[in-house]
Design a protein around this nucleic acid. Sequence first.
DNA 1: ATCCGGTACC
DNA 2: GGTACCGGAT
Length: 374
Amino acid sequence: MKRVVPAPAAGDGRQFADPTFSATVIAWQKQHGRHALPWQNTRDAYRIWLSEIMLQQTQVSAVIPYYLRFLQRFPDVASLAAAPVEDVMAHWSGLGYYTRARNLHRCAQRVVAEHGGNFPADPAMLAELPGIGRSTAAAIAAFACGARAAILDGNVKRVFARVFGIDGYPGEKKVEDALWLRAEALLPQADMTAYTQGLMDLGATVCARSRPACPACPLATRCVAFNTLRTAELPVRKPKKAVPQKHAALLVILHEGQVLLQQRPETGIWGGLLSLPEVGGFTPLENNADALPALAEHALLQAAAPYGVAEGSERLPVIVHVFTHFKLHITPYRVRLARRLPMVAQDGHVWLAASQLAQAPLPAPVKKLLLGIA
DNA sequence: ATCCGGTACC
DNA sequence: GGTACCGGAT
């Protein structure tokens, strides 16, 4: 029996087109959006560009005083291009992300040298310039000349993720691609300035990261997140990567009231501390605590051989220690020495009286273990 | 203390 | 695809 062959998915995002979306955003922007920010109500590409670069990673309220001071000192692209970079940096000082300022300066010099002092109108050409990526290029082109180009900054990603109920972390390539496809498909045929500003304003003022003002949102009735009570879950946050698990076998060798310790290398984990002699190094571990490698009796006795004549060993309960960057499963092995050998001096071994353990420079889990035994 | 973010760079 | 950048918000 023949089956219906599904139509190939349109790869151009046409299925996401919806003129009522942009109409809603535009109408809201005209009535409730921001209209008096210092970089609005101008088509001066220099001022628009400067504001967009400052607004990368930085909120409006922080940008405003910098923007005004910057513009006083560098009123046009030519004055910025001609200025020493130190001067530019000084006027950026405090805004953060200082490569933005260096790129700003380089960009101004290229606009002067390659474009006669005029910013290109084409978003693709803008995106060739230093510090201008796809989204910033679209914003500049839309505000400066009404170009029909899609922005997709953090605010817009949040609005789209909520309105369309997009599951998945937006930093993931396939999710971001899907967001760009939506952004392109939803562009209006006209009113690009109000639409672009409206998306930004919605994201910044209404569709806030926490406690969004959904009752004030013109998109609430069609917002998947609002209608399913998931505004707190969307957009999906950056997944915490599973911490790598490692395993270490440590020898607990007690003899006549003393414990054998070994100086750790200056670099690496527990750098420069005293610790228990380690067998075989920290080995990577699958995420399966049941599969902890157990050292064979003969391997333990062999490992203990330099320290004395070992007559037996006993596996102690595993200790799990969490670092910022990995989780360490420690298996301590208690080894009984029938007789202690004279210690080789050069490898940092030391016998320490149990009474001195509390004062010794030991890693916390090792100290805890030893104080529980000795 | 932790999360967040455009772009450049790796 | 992962990370650094840097200050603000929570």
